[in-house]
Simulated scan of single mutants.
Amino acid sequence: MFRFTTIFLHFLLLSVTEASDVLANNACDTLPYKHTTNGELDDWDPASFDIHELSGIRFATENDKEKLYIAMYIIDQSVQKRIAQAGMQVMIDVKGKKRESTYIEFPVKKDPLSEMPAPDLQAQNQSFTERLAASMLFLKKKGFKDQLQDIEMELAGRASDIMLSFGWDERNVLYIEYEIPLKRIAAVENLVGKEITVGFKLNAQESLPLPPKPVTPIGSFSARLVAVPAGSGPPASRTTSTQNANPAPANKILQPQQLFWMKHVLN
């Protein structure tokens, strides 16, 4: 009887210990996962993404004690092409408002002339994603703490404390990830429990400029034969002046600017 009681108590102790280990492991599993900024988003919870209905862009934000992580993915290829040409900004306002003074612009807005097709055959034979990636080389930073210049331009993906990565999957869905140290936006001790806003701005897309209308050079004139009564003087020449020529029209807006915000509480 004593032996049976001892065995039972030993089994009960093992069961309690194993249950404690399971609870401890489950508690660890609920901690925020440390993201790897590689442009794949396989370490993000799909349920954490919100959607901007007009553009179809899905976006999410998370943070740990040191960094703010922002992720987005874009399914529509026409939207991908638009941001590759017109540029997009991700803005952060630690005041929880909608100020646009601190942002990362990626891709960087380009001159509409750069939208003209490349003449070389190699560029023409590139895939859709290869052509976009070739134009998404730089990012622009403004408003972050400890910047050496008001606006800084750098290569996307270069080694930096503010990191950015992007890529496409086999369905040509574009993924973009941002990794920003909290100390680059404010004193970390002042951010715990604070609500910030993260904004996304798609710049207006412009068309190619229209070619200028041909004009007659200053000093030239057009002449035509006219009937002149006998005894009168020669017909007066008609000089065409370009001083009042209409200026070239401005670029046409194909897509207006789109701007949307989300709230995030830093934990």
Rank of each mutant, 00 (worst) to 15 (best):
K213Y: 11
A118P: 00
L14F: 11
A245P: 10
A27M: 11
H52C: 06
D120W: 12
W168V: 00
P212Q: 08
G39S: 03
K98E: 14
C28F: 05
H35R: 15
L68C: 03
R58E: 07
K81V: 07
R184S: 12
I180V: 11
A248N: 15
P211W: 03
A187Q: 15
V94H: 06
K252V: 12
E105W: 07
S55E: 08
N251H: 03
G233T: 13
F49I: 02
Y69I: 09
L139H: 01
W168Q: 04
G193F: 01
E195W: 02
E53R: 08
L164G: 03
E177K: 05
G39F: 00
P117Q: 04
D111Y: 03
H10E: 09
K65S: 14
V16K: 05
Y175K: 02
P32A: 09
P181Q: 11
P211F: 10
T239N: 12
S20N: 14
K34D: 09
E115C: 10
P211H: 11
P119R: 09
K98A: 10
F49N: 02
L139E: 01
L266N: 02
R224E: 15
T216R: 14
L210W: 07
N25E: 12
S222K: 14
S114V: 05
L113P: 01
I253Y: 05
Q205I: 04
G193A: 06
R99N: 13
E152R: 07
A186L: 12
E154L: 10
A86F: 03
I83R: 08
M91E: 01
